Computed example of a mutant assay.
Amino acid sequence: MIRTAIIGGAGYTAGELIRLLIHHPQVELTAIVSQSHAGQPVHVVHQDLVGNTQLSFVKNNDTEVDVTFLCLGHGKSQEYLAKNPIAKGKIIDLSNDFRLKKAAVFEDKTFIYGLPELQKEEIKKARYIANPGCFATTIQLALLPLAHAERIEHEVHVNAITGSTGAGQSLSPTSHFSWRNNNVSVYKAFNHQHLGEITESIKSLQPWFDESINFIPVRGNFTRGIMATAYTKISLNVDELKSLYEEYYEKSVFTYVSTQPIHLKQVVNTNKCLLHIEKHGPYALVTSMIDNLLKGASGQAIQNMNLLFGLEEDLGLKLKASIF
Rank of each mutant, 00 (worst) to 15 (best):
L21R: 00
R3A: 12
I262Q: 03
L241C: 09
V257G: 03
E250V: 12
S252P: 03
I302V: 15
A38W: 05
E64D: 15
P261T: 02
Y249L: 05
A321W: 05
G316V: 04
I213M: 11
G75H: 04
F69M: 04
Q140C: 15
S243F: 11
E312H: 11
I213Q: 08
W179D: 11
Q47A: 10
L317F: 10
K272S: 13
Y80V: 02
D97T: 01
G11H: 05
H46C: 07
I129Y: 11
S34P: 10
G114C: 09
Y80R: 08
P217A: 10
S258A: 09
T229C: 13
S322D: 15
L315I: 11
L20E: 07
Y128P: 00
Q40C: 09
D314Q: 08
F309V: 09
K242S: 07
E155F: 13
T4D: 07
E246W: 06
E200A: 08
K109I: 08
L20M: 07
T53S: 15
H276V: 03
R3I: 02
L311T: 05
D62I: 09
T270Y: 02
V33K: 06
V186S: 11
S56H: 14
K120Q: 14
N269F: 14
K272I: 02
L81R: 04
M289Q: 15
F69Q: 04
Y256M: 12
L311F: 12
L205N: 00
K295E: 06
A5E: 04
M227Y: 10
F309R: 03
H154F: 13
I6D: 05
L294V: 01
N191H: 15
